[in-house]
Design a binder for these strands. Structure first.
Lengths: 129, 129
DNA sequence: TTAGGTGCAAAACCTTTGCCATCCC
DNA sequence: GGGATGGCAAAGGTTTTGCACCTAA
């Protein structure tokens, strides 16, 4: 519950270094491969444990767009989502979809952008107490 | 590759009915539990197979916000992401974060909104050929 | 000294797949 | 009949966890 004291370890330092060396958002698997170049016998458990510790300590971010099992929906229109932080349920939102933002960001970045996904977070009506 | 012919089956019909009965975005596990009330001996494999078939047929959507393994990032500022449709890599974007949109959507929906995640899709510079 | 950290391996989860019987067209 | 579909179970990929041994403070 309370902040556990984080001790130094070369494994954690190496993991952090690898993460800071890239501008992409690697998977645990990729981090493991990279760190093994420096610490050949590091284990997967250690990588996962440290990613979790670093995340809890606020030193890194886990891409929460990729959280939990797949979810399915019969609504095939383009739309946005809301995910409740407490119960985890996901609902459709009836908000207008911003069709220009793809072009704006494409112009700014030079990337070839075909779409976007937007998910809001908070408490749903049931969980609001 | 070509559209396989979709034949009728009571299992697939039941799965679709369950999905259409809810406004949330259930997991395969939840769908399985619901469908079992009607078809007690349906199997998990059938649920997954049909979710995939229905998705490929465009009848339902898989929430692609929850795709693939977790990804980690040392950038803890609030920021948006770009995911390449071809190579799958994820990058940070240096676009301004819209801080007002949470309030706007909260006002429209009555939900308690604390944040949002925005991810753009397309082809990265390396994959653009 | 000692609580936190590691390596290893097993387990837990979620999803896919192979096999063969069954059903629909 | 023959290809699509289903049930079952095994396998696959990702993440977590228990345990005995280390190590930083």
């Amino acid at each position: 519950m309370v902040n556990a004291m984080l001790r130094r370890s070369k494994q954690r330092a190496a993991i952090l270094k690898v993460l800071r060396s890239t501008s992409s958002h690697p998977t645990a698997d990729w981090v493991y491969d990279q760190v093994r170049k420096e610490i050949p016998n590091i284990s997967f458990g250690t990588v996962y444990r440290n990613l979790k510790l670093l995340k809890d300590a606020g030193e890194i971010l886990e891409l929460d767009l990729a959280a939990g099992p797949s979810r399915y929906n019969h609504n095939v229109r383009d739309h946005y989502h809301f995910r409740c932080n407490r119960c985890g349920r996901v609902f459709d939102l009836d908000e207008p979809v911003d069709k220009d933002i793809n072009k704006r960001v494409a112009a700014n970045t030079g990337l070839d952008i075909t779409g976007h996904a937007l998910e809001f977070r908070g408490l749903c009506k049931d969980c609001k107490t």
